[in-house]
């Protein structure tokens, strides 16, 4: 789980061009949107692409994204649950 979280941090920084953010700046429990990392609607779409491209996972409904992309932790949990199920 720790490894997955660290990997996700790097992938998100890379995929979303968060040039000024370092992995250690991201608290895996902090919200990704709004006040947290300040991501916007295009970033949300980009996270959907990231899940599909890097983990082969598709969202059943785009509206599921809100819960899955709440934080790095929730993303990691979603990836783990899909891999083990």
């Amino acid at each position: 789980m720790e490894d997955l979280i660290e990997k996700l941090k790097l992938q998100i920084i890379d995929q979303l061009n968060l040039a000024e953010v370092k992995p250690e700046d991201i608290d895996p429990g902090q919200p990704l949107f709004g006040d947290g990392l300040g991501l916007d609607s295009i970033d949300a779409l980009e996270l959907i692409v990231l899940l599909e491209k890097e983990y082969g996972l598709k969202l059943d409904k785009p509206s599921d994204g809100k819960q899955i992309f709440h934080s790095i932790n929730s993303m990691a949990e979603f990836i783990r649950s899909q891999k083990t199920s």
């Binding site: 979303l16 061009n17 295009i42 970033d43 779409l45 980009e46 692409v49 599909e52 491209k53």
Partner: peptide
């Protein structure tokens, strides 16, 4: 085939 919304825009 992975179009990127942040490029497309």
């Amino acid at each position: 085939y992975f179009p990127s919304p942040s490029i497309f825009v």
